[in-house]
Design a protein around this nucleic acid. Structure first.
Lengths: 184, 184
DNA sequence: ACAGGCATGTAAATAGTTACATGATTCG
DNA sequence: CGAATCATGTAACTATTTACATGCCTGT
């Protein structure tokens, strides 16, 4: 069975409890978005396909009068998820417009090039702060015996802090040509 | 003028000297690929569009009998490139299947979850080594008075080394539950 | 009454990859 | 001679985003 990575996001998100498409989207936006995003345009059609393939099972779960369908993972779906988790990860893609601009920044005078680094720094600092504010949430998950969301979140914090720090160091190096040699 | 980021990759790559589509692709594969990739299917059609828009100018530059077109940036193209460089970077996308698997790794027993970290570690270590081997090349560029390719490359090395190290630390933490508290 | 969140979906457009086709040249 | 590299391109497919459409429920 060849499933798209987005399909595995869905399977993973319902592996502990059944959820609606809307809830899956909200969860993704609060957790995996930073390294794997998904839109409604992917989630709802995928749920339909996974349901047809027997990897998830939908059931009506209205909230009051508002109708609602939650999807649960099936035994076959769980097998599929576990098989995927056991394969070494393949896809690694990154699109960082900041690094791209920095790469070409020699076209501009140094002061304007440094501005790119300042934007990148501010962005990474903000993301780090936002992730930090999400830590208590993930610590709850740990209490529920799943340490991984917290590990990944702390990795994200550390990464964004490293990146922000790197931007600062490179800005300093850029504005002070004497410091151009490598510090390592 | 609304250009795709790939268009700016092309403009940037020919900002110092004219190049053929083939050469642009090769350059991208050796440099920006790690944070911004481009395929022939994007490059050749883009070159045509940029040429029609007057941002680049193609001219015949055969090598022997083999015909070949190199594209040079025009004054208008350079203006466009510089304007773009002055805007704060927007696009940041990341797809890291490893982090995704790690996020859901609670589904598997710890020893199998650690295997994902080992794969990620090996991958990042190899990338770091490959980038290191590219350093002499970028140091040449610095001699040509453009420090940015080297800065970006060294950032890539540092990032991959940080990531590899993080994977090692998380594997240790995972296999030794006593160490579960945060070290910071 | 209205804003905001809950809830499900689709259509259209854009972006991007992969595979293929073609052919010349260079190096061992 | 054969393999690798230079060189240009397109077609088909897949993925993904964005915008739109619809309507209910809750709190102020």
């Amino acid at each position: 069975m060849e499933l798209s990575p987005t399909a595995y996001v869905i399977l993973g998100m319902i592996s502990r409890e059944p959820r609606s498409g809307y809830e899956i989207k909200a969860l993704v936006d609060n957790t995996t978005r930073f390294f794997w995003a998904a839109s409604y345009g992917q989630i709802y059609p995928q749920l339909k396909r996974l349901s047809e393939a027997g990897l998830v099972a939908g059931s009506d779960a209205p909230r009051g009068e508002r109708k609602r369908t939650v999807y649960a993972i099936t035994a076959e779906g769980r097998r599929e998820l576990e098989d995927w988790l056991r394969q070494p990860p393949q896809t690694v893609e990154m699109r960082e417009e900041g690094l791209l601009k920095l790469f070409f920044a020699g076209v501009l005078p140094p002061e304007e090039a440094a501005e790119t680094l300042r934007s990148m720094h501010a962005y990474r600092r903000d993301i780090a702060a936002r992730l930090r504010s999400m830590e208590p949430d993930a610590e709850e998950k740990l209490a529920q015996d799943d340490p991984f969301p917290l590990i990944v979140l702390q990795g994200g914090i550390e990464f964004n802090e490293w990146f922000a720090d790197w931007c600062e160091r490179m800005e300093a190096r850029l504005l002070d040509p004497a410091r151009r040699e490598r510090s390592s």
